[in-house]
Design a protein around this nucleic acid. Sequence first.
DNA 1: TCTCTGCTCAC
DNA 2: CAAGTGAGCAGAGAC
Length: 449
Amino acid sequence: MIRKTPFHITPEQIKDYACEDADITFQLKKILEPEIEKPHLHHLFYDVEMPLVSVLKEIEQEGIAIDTAALTAFSKELDARLLTLDDEIKALAGEPFNIDSPKQLGEILFEKLQISSKAKKTKTGQYATSEDILQKHEHDHPIIGHILEYRQLRKLKSTYVDPLPTLCDPIDGRIHSNFMQTVTATGRLSSNNPNLQNIPVRSAKGREIRRAFVPRSSDFQLMAVDYSQIELRIIAALSQDPNMIAAFKSGHDIHAATAAKVFHTSIDEVTREQRSAAKAVNFGIIYGQSAFGLAQNLQISRTEAKGIIDAYFEQYGTIKTYMEKVIAQARELGYVETILKRRRYLPDIHSANAVVRGFAERNAINAPIQGSAADIIKVAMVAVQKAMSKEKLQSKMILQVHDELVFDVHVSEIERMQALVRTAMENAVSLEVPMEVEMKTASNWLEAH
DNA sequence: TCTCTGCTCAC
DNA sequence: CAAGTGAGCAGAGAC
């Protein structure tokens, strides 16, 4: 099979190859830049990125099998429902219009139907009609609920259900995505043609698409293995915050443990709301979120949000210190780095424009966390592949989704694979907090979660 | 045909 | 001002 990306070469061949092929020279340069000959990048480049080239090559060549009949049936189901919704929406609007046009939709909602007196506009002056805005008006007019459902089903059909069967290779019937190694700013992989890193999982209807991702034959099963809370564990390790490290070492549910600390209660008495607020703060921390952002996310007042954040940093004070330190480092050195010394340069950290500077500061906080997670799973992938080949297994690694690896496992090898993958992933790096994985094996990707 | 915009899917 | 990293779709308008 001919790959679309130039990874069908061994690390040993890569330098010669680079001279001949403009594309891979360009890609390599991006990995190498700006200072590959300096010692700090040797380990990352020669022991992680270069060996990963052949791991990705195999993943891409193996591909993943798809139940196309199931997707075709689902597509017809979606069509029928979309047709009904289309009629109902136009009837409620009192005139035909293109529901897929945010411009036309905004004019119908905010001018003709006047569902709100304080309509928000986008930067180009159109009415904003995004999901979070429509949800706020869901009870103001029956058309809103219909539009939200229409948008969801349209997305599923046009992005996943219809394109996936057409992307099956005619020879082996599998989907062969590209996993790009040199695209992102943080060191993550990206996936395209098709993107297999954003297959739906959150909504009930969307999840059904995962059911169509299946093992290659009846002798195989899909095994999904994901790192548990890897980014929060990395913050704990990078910041050396004693409270968060202790929380992870105790093995408790981290969001519940955070809620117990923030709301001064025992872990058994944490309410659902408290846990969900703590979870939102934990995620917000990773992104450099403000009180304003948290307030919007949780639909609470800014004062309440600030109270929660203050209580959070009272418990996890070292995390606050760490965040200040990493921004100061970005100002001083012009870059931040991951646990494997991967750098992200942030020239905007010196911008006179506060908005631009704010972006760079959030990048400074996020890049070491997201990038270190990428470092860890890349090390694990190389280790897993090495162990699988040493044991001469016929199981295959077939997907990477940032904190998750998916394997097509021969049924006779399930137990060996479970042990091998757990060992490789949990021991990819040694940090102050344990790296834990969760794994499940089933006859499709949905049930392997 | 190409590019931009707005939106929505994932981690 | 205000949550990080991506990919892909349809509409809209420039060419």
